[in-house]
Amino acid sequence: MCRSIRTLRPPMTPEVTDEDVRAAALQYVRKVSGFRAPAAHNRAAFEEAVDAVAEATRRLLDGLEVRGRGAARTDT
C-alpha cells in the first residue's frame, strides 16, 4: 500500500526515532486521505489522524517482542 513506509521494528531498524514514527504516520495518512497537503478546512482532521497513527505505531513497536531478544524497546 505505502511503499515509501519503511519497516521500523528491530532488527530491521535498530534505533527508531519519533521522527521515523511520525514520517511513517504521515505517509499512511497521505495515502489513505489522498491528500499530500490538505486544504485549510481539512488540516485539523489530517493532523489529528497523523498524531493518532503515530501514537498507535509507537504502541505497536513498544509492544512487539523480537524472538530471542525480549521486548523490542525497554524504558530504562
Rank of each mutant, 00 (worst) to 15 (best):
R3F: 10
S4C: 07
S4N: 09
S4D: 09
S4T: 14
S4Q: 08
I5K: 13
R6L: 09
R6C: 08
T7F: 02
R9K: 11
P10H: 05
P11W: 04
P11Y: 01
P11L: 06
P11N: 11
M12V: 11
M12F: 08
T13E: 00
T13L: 07
P14Y: 02
P14F: 01
E15S: 06
E15Q: 13
T17R: 12
T17I: 07
T17G: 14
D18K: 08
D18R: 02
E19P: 01
R22T: 14
R22Q: 06
R22N: 07
A23E: 10
A23T: 14
A23Y: 01
A25V: 08
L26R: 15
Q27L: 15
Q27G: 15
Y28G: 00
Y28T: 04
Y28I: 02
V32C: 09
V32K: 14
V32E: 14
S33W: 02
S33H: 07
G34Y: 06
F35H: 13
F35I: 01
F35D: 10
F35N: 08
R36Y: 07
A37R: 14
A37W: 05
P38Y: 02
P38F: 04
A40K: 15
R43C: 03
R43V: 11
R43L: 14
A44Y: 05
A44F: 04
A45C: 05
A45L: 09
F46R: 01
F46A: 03
F46Y: 15
E48S: 09
E48N: 11
A49K: 11
V50A: 00
V53D: 00
V53G: 00
A54T: 05
A54L: 09
A54Q: 01
A56W: 04
T57L: 15
T57I: 13
T57K: 10
T57V: 07
T57M: 15
T57P: 04
R58Y: 00
R58N: 05
R59M: 07
R59D: 13
R59N: 07
L60D: 13
L60V: 13
L60S: 13
G63N: 15
L64G: 00
V66N: 00
G68M: 07
G68D: 11
G68Y: 07
R69A: 12
G70P: 02
G70Q: 12
A71P: 08
A72N: 13
A72M: 07
R73Q: 08
T74Y: 03
T74Q: 09
D75M: 05
T76L: 06
T76D: 12
